[in-house]
C-alpha cells in the first residue's frame, strides 16, 4: 500500500507528536505477539513509558462485532468498517494522545492487517487505504515472515475447532475449515509481501529462534531510543 496517503493526514493533524510507534505484523502463529511482549518488558525495564495495544480489542466495539459474527451475516464491507471503528476508538482514545504525551506505543497489528484482510475479503484496495489514512505512520513496522505451514501448525496444535471468520469460511475457499484457513492465510501472506517494500517493513524470520528474533528487534529499536544517535 502506498505511504503517501499517510503523510497527508499527518499534515492535517498539526499537533506535535513526541512518542514513538512500533508495530508488529504477520499472520496468526508468526510469533509476533511473543516478540512484542518481550520488547515491552525490555523497554519497561529501562523505565520508558510504554503502552501496548492489540487489534480488535476495543470493549465497546468487540461486543457488537462478536454479535454480528455469531449471526454470520457480516458482509466484507461491514466487517471492514467494524474493524476500522475498533481501530479508530483505540486510536482516538489511546494511541494518538499517548504518542503526543511521549509514550512508546507498541501495536500488535496496525492498519496493514486491515489492508491485508479486507483486500483478501474483496474490498476495494484504494477504498480501504483511504479509510485508514488518518492513522499516523509508524516509526518501525516489523513483519514476521513465516512459511504458512509453520504458522498453521502452531495455531492448530491443541485447537479442535476454528472460528467461522477466523478460518475465512465466509470466502467460500473450501468446505473444510482447515483447508480454508490455510488458503486464507496464504492469501494474507501475499498481501503482506506486496507491502514489504512500499511500506518499509523490517522483515524478521519468524521461523528462527525466539531469542535471535528478539535480539534483531531490540537492535533496531535501540537506534530509536533517546540517548542513541
Amino acid at each position: 500500500m502506498n505511504s503517501n496517503s499517510l503523510s497527508s493526514s499527518q499534515r492535517s493533524e498539526k499537533l506535535q507528536v513526541k512518542g514513538k510507534l512500533i508495530v508488529v505484523e504477520g499472520i496468526d502463529g508468526s510469533g509476533k505477539s511473543t516478540q512484542i511482549r518481550l520488547l515491552g518488558k525490555w523497554l519497561k525495564s529501562k523505565l520508558l513509558p510504554v503502552f501496548m495495544t492489540e487489534w480488535n480489542s476495543s470493549e465497546m466495539v468487540k461486543e457488537i462485532t462478536s454479535k454480528g459474527k455469531k449471526k454470520g451475516r457480516l458482509t466484507p464491507t461491514t466487517f471492514s468498517l467494524l474493524h476500522a471503528t475498533d481501530f479508530a476508538d483505540r486510536y482516538e482514545r489511546n494511541i494518538f494522545p499517548l504518542m503526543r504525551a511521549g509514550y512508546i506505543v507498541l501495536a500488535d497489528r496496525y492498519i496493514y492487517t486491515a489492508y491485508a484482510r479486507d483486500i483478501v475479503r474483496g474490498c476495494s484496495p484504494k477504498w480501504v487505504c483511504k479509510v485508514y489514512d488518518f492513522a499516523i505512520k509508524p516509526d518501525v513496522v516489523f513483519y514476521f515472515r513465516v512459511p504458512v505451514d509453520v504458522a498453521v501448525e502452531r495455531i492448530l496444535v491443541g485447537r479442535p475447532k476454528l472460528k467461522y471468520y477466523e478460518a475465512g469460511m465466509d470466502l467460500n475457499l473450501s468446505n473444510d475449515q482447515y483447508d480454508s484457513y490455510r488458503i486464507f492465510q496464504s492469501r494474507i501472506i501475499e498481501q503482506y509481501e506486496s507491502m514489504v517494500k512500499s511500506d518499509g517493513f523490517i522483515v524478521i524470520d519468524g521461523a528462527s529462534g525466539i531469542e535471535k528474533q528478539q535480539q534483531a528487534v531490540r537492535n533496531t529499536i535501540m537506534k530509536l531510543l533517546p540517548g542513541s544517535s
Partner: peptide, 12 residues
C-alpha cells in the same frame, strides 16, 4: 466515542 470512531460506527 471520538468523532472518527462515531463516523466509522455509523458507516458500518
Amino acid at each position: 466515542l471520538g468523532k472518527r470512531t462515531l463516523s466509522l460506527f455509523y458507516a458500518a
